[in-house]
């Protein structure tokens, strides 16, 4: 019957649409349920954040463990205050960890790399990383290099 083929076609169409949605969710955006879990927040102050933006990733040895959630200026120290959200399963950041703003490749995006120290105590929500290293700004680097050359 004609109505039957139409209904079949529409059913398949709607099914295909939702299948596409599932593919988009699982394969393309790599959404996992764990991202819904609240991580804990830590802070770090930097002299210069270069091109770091909200949603940049936070890594240990290049493995993403969280993301930047907010960037403001600390009015007292006049430094950039970066708020990061670390996923809860990474609970072994020591208090003397250091954070550096790194670049993926020569022109790639900026991200934060954390090196874990040797302290006994671990970081908790609201703690701050004291030991920070600012972004390398290419212009400054070139400027210094030229300045040294002139001085020689």
């Amino acid at each position: 019957m004609r109505m039957r083929t139409i209904e079949l076609g529409v059913g398949a169409f709607i099914f295909a649409g939702f299948l596409a949605l599932v593919v988009l969710i699982v394969n393309v955006s790599g959404l996992t349920l764990s991202t819904n879990e609240e991580g804990y927040r830590i802070y770090a102050r930097f002299e210069n954040i270069g091109g770091l933006t909200v949603r940049s990733k936070v890594t240990i040895s290049g493995v993403a463990i969280g993301k930047v959630t907010n960037i403001t200026i600390d009015p007292d120290a006049l430094k950039a205050l970066v708020e990061m959200e670390i996923e809860p399963q990474y609970d072994y950041l020591t208090l003397d960890s250091s954070a550096a703003i790194l670049t993926a490749g020569l022109l790639g995006e900026k991200y934060i790399g954390i090196s874990v120290g040797a302290d006994e105590e671990m970081m908790a929500d609201g703690d701050e990383i004291e030991d920070t290293q600012s972004a390398l700004v290419l212009e400054e680097l070139i400027g210094k290099f030229l300045f040294n050359k002139v001085n020689e």
Partner: peptide, 13 residues
Amino acid sequence: FISLPLLSMIFSV
């Protein structure tokens, strides 16, 4: 109204 979002997702995939 129902079709275009479905079509668009199929297009993406």
